[in-house]
Write a protein that binds this DNA or RNA. Structure first.
Lengths: 179, 179
DNA sequence: TGATCGCACCTTACTGTGTAAAGGGCGCGG
DNA sequence: CCGCGCCCTTTACACAGTAAGGTGCGATCA
């Protein structure tokens, strides 16, 4: 009895994410993660040979990869919708933001950027303009969420700023310059 | 002989910054910092009672506080000039970026934001518009530099992207939506 | 002058971290 | 029934931050 389900890379990552969401990035520890998985810490290395480095990389990929969904409509509207969804995703895992913004990660953010870039390209912009536009939008979005996450990670937030409104207002200003 | 100069908070912070710039944030250690200062690690606690936490806080304040300089000229030009200077400052200490973007810091970024906000206010924008504008510009700037820093912290950069050009192009698009 | 005191620094030691290395044990093919 | 290989555990190490208390030296004052 009490058959625990098998240890897999997916289960490790999801548990780690859950741990971060519940207790904060600072408390994500190999041993604690092991405890949550009902396994010794070293068992994790069997599925993630490069240890914590690899774990964090996977976490970034899991949270930060969210390309613009295909579909029709005005480019600006599609971008606005996507940006809102992306921000929600990121704010849903504020603890991972430091990793996303900080750690070099080949691919995770790239795929997202590329999808934005392609949308802009399809909307008629030149390759160069699309590249600048995508980079600008992603910079704003990540910067904004990072600032927001910073503030929210304080204790009970005494500042009841209208983050949503501020984000949307800024987003419109940025989009105006892009598409 | 070999009188070492007295240990002060300023000397500690500058040495720490130098250490980060030279070896990376990951190698900033109390003991290593002590070595650089020719002092035992615990001596630092006499000048920074809250230890590493306080040290990092001071580092952020030292690097991230750079208000818009007073002066005349078109608001947009002043903002463009300031943004370029701020980015240079941040890129001059890429190792500190993770701290700036990540750690809650009461004041350091705030004073900078406020100075931008006041410039916009003086340029004729309403309080609300100025707040949104300042927040948007700072979000873009920090996001852009964070992405840039991430990429540059890779080994010898094989990607010879024109970061400066991209930053300036994006900056103009953002400024167009603000002032 | 000599005793006293307190500042600035050092010594020691503890907890917690990531992870290398090697040891089980259990199921499965021969 | 044997041995092998996959997963996991055990053990151990170097290094992190820092609490607690000791130490020496210059300044102060009788």
């Amino acid at each position: 009895m009490s058959q625990r389900e098998p240890l897999t890379r997916e289960r490790i990552i999801e548990t780690a994410l859950h741990l971060i969401d519940g207790q904060g990035l600072g408390r994500l520890t190999m041993r604690r993660l092991g405890d949550s998985l009902e396994v010794e810490a070293m068992a994790i290395y069997h599925h993630l040979p490069h240890g914590k480095e690899q774990l964090l990389e996977q976490l970034i990929a899991h949270v930060a990869a969210l390309p613009v969904p295909p579909g029709g409509g005005a480019p600006r509207d599609r971008l606005r919708a996507w940006a809102g969804a992306y921000r929600d995703r990121l704010l849903g895992h504020v603890g991972v933001m430091p990793l996303i913004v900080t750690r070099r990660n080949p691919g995770a953010l790239l795929s997202t950027t590329v999808s934005v870039q392609e949308l802009l390209r399809a909307a008629g912009l030149s390759e160069a303009e699309a590249a600048v536009g995508a980079h600008t939008l992603l910079s704003y979005l990540l910067g904004e969420v990072a600032l927001e996450a910073r503030e929210r990670s304080a204790g009970t937030s005494p500042d009841d700023l209208d983050w949503d409104g501020r984000f949307l207002a800024g987003l419109d200003r940025v989009l105006a310059g892009i598409a």
